[in-house]
Design a protein around this nucleic acid. Structure first.
Lengths: 339, 339
DNA sequence: ATAAGGAATGTAAGCGGTTACATAATATCG
DNA sequence: CGATATTATGTAACCGCTTACATTCCTTAT
């Protein structure tokens, strides 16, 4: 069986307190003893039991990351950046992929809370629902540890939100289309998450502002968004229904990819006959030809800021409850915006 | 501060042992007491401390998952499947993204071991090096818990390997090209992981078998493989060096995507003038036009089997040290194989 | 009615660490 | 050189939970 601190103390001929001290880098240990103990530790490849450790310490510099689906390109990238940042700050991360079901999310939240993490990061705006009731589990959890929201916002004590101004950015995007006289635009979305709702609002606002009715131009895709062909079929259906469009604004890059595929299938020239823009600036944008214009919603900046905020909070500093960045259009080949 | 089992026992007017019993679903508790306790637990939203729990139990039905980079499409998918499977089996998963550095990997392995997980899954063949020395940390760890390798193999007691016969599959793929008289083929790879080495061998074997020297036809890409344009540049360089090829066999889909991009840039018709095949059958294959032929290396089957094997091992059953599946070619539009 | 067996509950000893406090060893200084 | 401050080490209580074992309370059969 694996070694305990008692075994080590015996082999090293010191007390367990001393072993614990060298383990935790306490200063009051003579160099000689320290070396002696470290040698034994080395020799037996001893790793202290984290559970026991957690009991004594109460905290292990660990933060829990909850992510609905880490096979989603955007979320996976977010998780990746987060882990990097946390590690750089001396924190360890525990990741749980919860799926999108609310009850499962709740369970995982409790599970991760039971591990006495120092903080929790909820990755992606699907964690924030429109109704108070559905967000209750977050409020409950916030009583125990700070909750960090990545790419979403929810105002509540001990909840910190880091996000991109998706609404404003989407309005800007839409205006670019309109300014370029590309006015027959449709909007494709596949999620009603917090940021999904914001983006939709942004699109709507831009159109309404020009007196265009947006409602008949927004289409919700229900399938798995990474199934490009399904998305292409979906766009085809829209066209078949008689909807005319020369521009497609998408809430996700995957949607844009589907639109591209639809264009390819019908020999529609992009961007001459159809302008397309995605959202998230994922690697997918550069995968096809022509490369897809997209929106960089500052994921890396967000994660950096999130960890900085969390670290601040944990060390007792006063931190802003919301930090908002502006998205940036990354123009590629599927649009022909005027400058 | 959060509640303890003592608080609950007091409120419920029973002993902590009884609370513990209802917590663990022990049978010897009267329905009345059980309800009484559950009510209090419910009321105070009590979650037992996992550390304390882990100490008492020694195990928490938890397995550690180590993955170099969960923003990699293939690895992310693997992690996703694994979590699903584990959850279905009543296990909880702790994920650590380690990066590719050996020392960091070692650290994370120890870290996760210190959490007294029941088993460890190493996702992706980059965990297995060619030299014994570099694999020592795995052998050490295997002394404590079973180690499961996904998509890699390493023979050692208490280490279980689940993988695809990448070598044989790659030979088959290459033969398909040769049989279709597409003989000027080049091989693109970007990793020398365990499976990377196997795939290379497979390619080599097929060529050597026909008396073709493979060495001058294999090209190693050093950059980040998800940067499609960089890969396209890389292929361009190969062409510029005067290498003639009408077929590209890739060790990864991302490489195939780069090859596609190269073809698009040069108006090379695919598959008429250039045949391309990827590996992994990721969503990327369907993203571009024409859609890329690829190899399904049975990831889902692998993860399923892996968890089954792990569960078997943990319940004391004798399990096969190696389970190997055969890859399957998923023919799409970038190849024109003869049947 | 009573002994015996079984179910429900409680008591207390770990699990493997941390750490306040006590004690021993060493250094500092008049 | 003795008194005192400082540093090094040990002792033991505690963290929150599980569980073997002890105890109490019902049943049920005799």
């Amino acid at each position: 069986m694996s070694m305990t601190i008692y075994d080590i103390s015996k082999k090293a001929g010191v007390s367990i307190a001393t072993v614990s001290r060298v383990l935790n880098g306490s200063s009051n240990v003579s160099p000689a003893t320290r070396k002696k103990v470290n040698d034994v530790i080395e020799q037996y490849d001893y790793t202290p039991n984290a559970y026991a450790r957690g009991m004594g310490l109460g905290s292990l510099k660990t933060v829990g990351i909850l992510c609905a689906d880490c096979s989603d390109l955007f979320l996976a990238k977010a998780v990746y950046y987060l882990q990097q940042e946390l590690q750089a700050q001396g924190y360890e991360a525990l990741l749980c992929c919860t799926g999108y079901n609310l009850d499962v999310k709740k369970n995982y939240l409790n599970l991760i809370l039971s591990k006495k993490v120092d903080g929790i990061v909820l990755v992606g705006s699907n964690f924030i629902a429109d109704t108070e009731a559905e967000n209750k589990y977050i409020m409950d959890a916030s009583a125990q540890v700070p909750i960090m929201l990545l790419n979403a916002a929810f105002d509540y004590p001990n909840v910190y939100s880091i996000l991109c101004d998706d609404q404003g950015t989407m309005t800007e995007v839409t205006n670019k289309f309109l300014d370029a006289d590309c006015t027959d635009i449709i909007y494709l979305y596949n999620s009603l998450s917090y940021s999904g709702r914001k983006k939709m609002k942004g699109f709507k606002a831009a159109l309404n502002n020009r007196g265009i009715n947006a409602d008949k131009r927004m289409f919700f895709f229900e399938g798995k968004s990474d199934d490009v062909n399904a998305v292409a079929d979906f766009v085809q259906e829209i066209a078949d229904k008689g909807v005319k469009f020369n521009g497609v604004v998408c809430a996700e890059d995957t949607m844009a990819l589907g639109a591209m595929k639809y264009a390819m299938r019908n020999d529609i020239k992009v961007p001459e006959e159809l302008e397309i823009i995605g959202y998230n600036d994922s690697i997918l944008c550069e995968c096809c030809t022509p490369e897809i214009t997209s929106v960089d919603n500052r994921l890396e900046t967000q994660t950096h800021q999130l960890v900085a905020t969390l670290v601040g909070v944990l060390s007792g500093e006063e931190m802003p409850a919301r930090t908002i960045f502006s998205g940036r259009i990354v123009e590629r080949k599927t649009t022909s915006f005027v400058e």
